[in-house]
Simulated assay, not measured.
Amino acid sequence: MSKMDYKVGFIGCGNMGSAILKGMLQASLFDANNIYVYAADETQHEKLKNEFGIRIAKDNKEIMELCDFVILAVKPIHFPSVIEEIKDVYTSDKVIVSIAAGMMIDKIRKLFEQDVKVVRIMPNTPALVNEGASGICASDNISVQENQVVTSIFSALGVTVQIPEEKMHGVVAVSGSSPAYVFMFIDALIQGGMKQGLCYEDARLLASQSVLGAAKLVQESEDSLDQLVKNVCSPGGTTIEAVHVLEDKQLKDIVMEAMEACANKSRKMSE
């Protein structure tokens, strides 16, 4: 695959920004010489330059001036100050990529005070190991080719789904935040295993691999989730006893209630 001849800039490059940067380069989507970074924590600059061979910009404004695609990898609270720095040098041939929860396209455009081209992404932390899941929505003035470029970047980190913006709150609840729920479940499996006499290291390995394997089965099997559960349960066996407890404790209802709270917070942040 030939590398794309665009300049990509990162404003902010923490854990998620670094994951995106690493994924782009590992997938050979862009030449490192065409990637620019400016982060508030300037101690990162030398580290990123040495590790990835990318270029360091002198400030956020230079990122906007030089790059075709500008990834805003900063927290929502910093959007107003960052956009204030760069809005005067934005031109209509450039694409703004936002990975911030709650930052609607219209809100970003209002901060720029013009109809900027925006692609919103809701990634998740498994992108750090190239197993991410990202929802993508684009403003109405994004071309098919521009959308394909952004989608290619995030596809290098896992799977992507094109989502209308009004459904992005659901993406936040289903994939954006759900790694935290899964980590809690894995921790419960580990603690349960230790209660049954396993050491921590063995319980952690068995629990994490079981969740990984179960997820792979969901992706590759044509069976429904109900059928996959039944496939593990032998009549009168051990698994059915555990399943009955989880059903009695209403596991599904607890998870769905948590997701509703997550989505509602996303909606509130978007106001």
Rank of each mutant, 00 (worst) to 15 (best):
D5S: 10
G9S: 09
G14M: 05
M16I: 12
G17I: 07
G17S: 05
A27E: 15
S28Y: 13
L29A: 04
A32I: 01
N33P: 00
A40H: 15
A40T: 05
D41K: 11
E42R: 11
T43I: 02
T43V: 01
Q44F: 05
H45A: 10
E46H: 15
K47A: 14
L48H: 01
N50K: 12
E51R: 12
F52T: 00
A57C: 13
K61D: 00
E62L: 06
M64P: 06
M64A: 13
E65F: 02
D68H: 13
D68N: 14
I71Y: 08
L72Q: 07
L72Y: 01
A73F: 05
V74E: 12
P76E: 07
F79R: 04
F79T: 11
S81Y: 00
S81K: 07
S81A: 08
V82T: 04
K87R: 15
T91V: 04
D93G: 09
I96G: 12
I99R: 04
A101C: 02
G102Y: 11
G102M: 09
G102K: 07
M103A: 05
M104A: 14
I105V: 15
D106L: 10
K107P: 00
I108T: 13
K110W: 00
K110T: 08
K110H: 03
L111E: 08
Q114P: 01
D115A: 13
V116P: 09
I121Q: 03
I121K: 06
N124T: 09
G132I: 00
A133Y: 02
A133L: 04
A133N: 08
S134H: 02
S134A: 15
G135C: 01
D140C: 05
S143H: 09
V144K: 14
V144Q: 10
E146P: 07
Q148M: 07
T151Y: 02
S152Q: 14
F154P: 04
S155C: 03
A156R: 04
V159H: 02
Q162L: 06
E165I: 07
H169M: 03
V172C: 11
G176F: 03
V182M: 10
V182Y: 10
M184G: 02
M184T: 08
F185G: 02
I186P: 01
I186K: 04
A188W: 01
L189V: 07
Q196P: 00
C199V: 11
C199R: 04
Y200H: 09
D202A: 09
D202E: 15
A203N: 12
A203T: 06
R204A: 14
L206P: 00
S208W: 01
S208Q: 15
Q209E: 13
Q209G: 00
L212D: 00
G213I: 12
G213S: 02
A214V: 01
K216M: 15
Q219H: 12
E220K: 11
S221V: 11
D223R: 14
Q227Y: 08
N231I: 00
N231M: 14
V232F: 06
S234A: 09
P235F: 13
P235Q: 09
T238A: 15
T239C: 02
V243Q: 10
K249E: 09
D253F: 05
V255M: 12
M259I: 11
M259A: 15
E260K: 14
E260G: 05
A263R: 14
N264R: 11
S270F: 02
S270T: 09
S270W: 07
E271W: 00
